[in-house]
Nucleic acid binder design. Structure first.
Lengths: 135, 135
DNA sequence: TCCCTCTTTTAGAATTATTCTAATTTAGTT
DNA sequence: AACTAAATTAGAATAATTCTAAAAGAGGGA
């Protein structure tokens, strides 16, 4: 049934449900680690690195996952994006916290007013430091 | 006097005011193109590419400029960040629009509540498509 | 169920943006 | 004017990501 759900998610986005895609999607849905391609490859070592990259690209294209590439390590991190959310990044540790306690509707409206575009998505990263070393 | 202001900006952030840094900072302040290191190097060809990268890193570190690396071209784009603002990205054209008609204070407060961190900055990118091709 | 076709996967090579190195120059101070 | 730590530089090195072209697999139709 997990498998069924995963198939449904892929097919709803027009992607064939291959073993590799099911594995990678499940991995992203069950890990809160915001992994890189290499990290996924280390755990799913029976899937080639090229396929990891190909699949991640596809999942990003259809909007199932998103990329975080603002970390200091210069690698792309991936995040399952079932529910839209924003990220809080601890600049001391590079830890990424998922959060959704903010309504983006007013921001969308502001962006629409400025640009005239139909808004399709967002990426928000908030940076912070541990409170006792703020200054 | 422009030069004076540029020196002041650099020195206020603890950076020596070299010819190269003055040139690159002025370039970023006077171009709305959100250029890459290569684009800057193409225009300021008397400055070595290594120095362009070094200088951009320094300017990012002290917060004078920010990086946009969510574009499809897989290159880092840089943006003078004199006044905090957010970005609206036209997914059809990759055009980046600077906007500031949104108060981030409530978002900062939400992030502080979730994380307990002292919030130091933000990165917001809103994606959109031209209205007549939204669906 | 069994083809058929188009898509996906794969290993390894290739690419290229960015970083590193070590030598030279420079900014800012004494 | 001299000093010293910091900055610049050319070119080599790195490594994340992309490409290639051959093999395997998914899913629809008969």
């Amino acid at each position: 049934m997990v498998d069924k759900t995963l198939r449904d998610i892929l097919q709803a986005h027009g992607l064939k449900a291959t073993f590799q895609r099911l594995s990678i999607l499940e991995y992203l849905m069950t890990h809160e680690t915001h992994p890189t391609a290499e990290m996924i490859h280390a755990d799913l070592s029976n899937i080639s690195l090229a396929t990891i990259y190909n699949t991640l690209d596809k999942l990003v294209d259809v909007g199932i996952i998103i990329v975080i590439d603002t970390l200091k390590d210069d690698k792309r991190h991936y995040d399952y994006y079932g529910e839209p959310h924003y990220h809080i990044i601890n600049s001391n540790t590079n830890e990424i916290i998922d959060a959704d306690n903010f309504d983006v509707a007013p921001l969308f409206e502001a962006a629409r007013q400025v640009s005239g575009l139909n808004i399709t998505g967002f990426h928000i990263e908030i940076y912070g430091v541990e409170a006792d070393q703020a200054k």
